[in-house]
Nucleic acid binder design. Structure first.
Length: 399
RNA sequence: GGUGAGAUAGUCAAGUGGCCAACGACGGCGGACUGUAAAUCCGCUCCCUACGGGUUCAGAGGUUCGACUCCUCUUCUCACCA
């Protein structure tokens, strides 16, 4: 039982520091029912959660299963500084109002995965604000500039002469101080957070709170392109709020290679089950599309419902495998004879008439399933299904 | 504060008086092939009812028949020195 739990917790993790401590905590839970705390910090700058975030959240959910209370920390104070991690330039600060807005929307999305009863949502402004100038000074005495500069991203910026704000030095200290205040037993975060996570251990020692948190780091999930990390700004993300059809389609569009990565980090299937799937694909007994489809179903169902996931699959097959028209299409209408290029722009299928002409020339445009090649075509009164490429559809009513 | 370098399309990056709507790479889009995969191959990639016209190379002026290219100022970035 203990070993099983441990295995599940370690699954997919990139690095664990002080795993003995995690084992002890689990043992105490199984033997005596003692609970413990797991901290995870979130920056309220990005309120739209995507699957990259859920890797962490799912890990937290597993901890909850084995006796943990999650300290879901919203870094409302630290967000005013901006986490320097991975940044090549100083961040802009956010307004207090903005942070509140974002934090609220965070909570809303998070409980799709976490058990609210075993989750404590905390804001770090609560204890950092009262720190005051003297508390702050005490905090800064625990660390020095030279060690701060050992950090890779600081080091690079320092050497290249890019500005580093003093407040950015403060950031890791504050994040570490959160662990002091919360007396966290474990903290989890992405591998890019290593420095900040270790700061928690350092400060817990410095403040002599009688424990040092274990640290569990999860790998960063790659986005749809399979190369860069999943992020909203790179537009390679699958949002937890995506419509079932979109979510299903996006997952199915990832490469086979990336699919295994997603299986490992996102699926709730056991590692041996996944291994079996892998073998099945390798020896040809399982079709990779089928395997990917199951993954897409599982994930879509998690954020919507099983029924929604299934109808997303049916819709997908209908449109893509059987080349039929999707059930729901945007509808537009206009008056009089319309030039086809203009119509495509009006229906938001192409950004400009120039693009529309190019698409027609390339054979990408279909009207009522028929490919057209006349870029001068005028649409007379009637109803048309317009299509550009494989996935853009619109219904146009000409009056 | 001083000195020098630079700012080119979504990104990186050529172009240093007409051959420039601007090489190339990446990305993106489309077509073929497929499992809407991946890989590969081909085409497209500022706007405009278009073998023509319009607006672009940080911003504002100027020189010139003609400027992304030369000059002046402004803004912003970077490097070196203090």
């Amino acid at each position: 039982m203990l070993q099983e739990a441990l295995k599940e917790i370690k699954r997919g993790s990139a690095e664990i520091i002080d795993s003995d401590r995690i084992e002890k905590l689990l043992k105490a839970y199984f033997d005596e029912g003692k609970t413990y705390s797991v901290k995870a910090g979130f920056d309220p700058t990005a309120p739209d959660l995507h699957l990259g975030h859920t890797v962490l959240l799912q890990k937290l959910a597993i901890f909850q299963k084995y006796g943990a209370t999650i300290q879901f920390l919203i870094g409302d104070f630290t967000a005013q500084i901006g986490d320097p991690t991975g940044k090549s330039a100083t961040r802009k600060t956010l307004s207090a109002f903005q942070i509140q807005e974002n934090a609220a929307s965070y909570k809303e999305q998070v409980f799709k995965i976490l058990d609210p009863l075993k989750t404590e949502v905390v804001f770090n402004s609560e204890w950092i604000n009262p720190l005051g100038a003297s508390g702050m000074l005490t905090l800064t005495t625990t660390f020095n500039v030279a060690r701060m500069l050992e950090r890779d991203d600081f080091d690079k910026r320092y050497k290249s002469g890019t500005s580093i704000s003093i407040s950015e030095f403060i950031y890791p200290l504050l994040q570490g101080y959160d662990s002091v205040h919360l007396k966290s037993d474990i903290e989890i975060g992405g591998t890019d957070q290593k420095f900040n996570l270790l700061m928690g251990r350092h400060l817990q020692r410095a403040y002599e709170i009688g424990k040092e948190q274990a640290v569990l780091m999860m790998p960063i999930l790659e986005g749809l392109d399979g190369v860069q990390k999943m992020s909203k700004s790179l537009n390679n993300y699958i949002g937890v709020a995506d419509e079932p059809n979109d979510m299903f389609g996006k997952i199915l569009s990832v490469s086979d290679e990336l699919m295994w990565r997603y299986y490992e980090l996102l699926s709730t299937k056991t590692l041996s089950e996944i291994e079996a799937l892998k073998n099945g694909v390798a020896d040809g007994t399982l079709h990779p599309k089928k395997v990917k489809e199951n993954l897409a179903l599982e994930i879509t169902a998690r954020f919507h419902s099983f029924e929604a996931a299934q109808s997303a699959r049916d819709e997908f097959d209908k449109v893509h495998s059987n080349n039929q028209i999707p059930t729901e299409i945007e509808e537009y209408s206009c008056n009089g004879d319309v030039w086809i290029a203009k119509a495509l722009v009006d229906c938001n299928l192409t950004p400009s008439t120039s693009q529309a002409r190019r698409d027609i020339k390339q054979g990408a445009v279909k009207i009522n399933q028929e490919k057209i090649d006349d870029e001068q075509l005028q649409l007379a009164t009637g109803e048309y299904i317009l299509q550009v490429g494989k996935r853009k559809f619109a219904k146009l009513k000409v009056n």
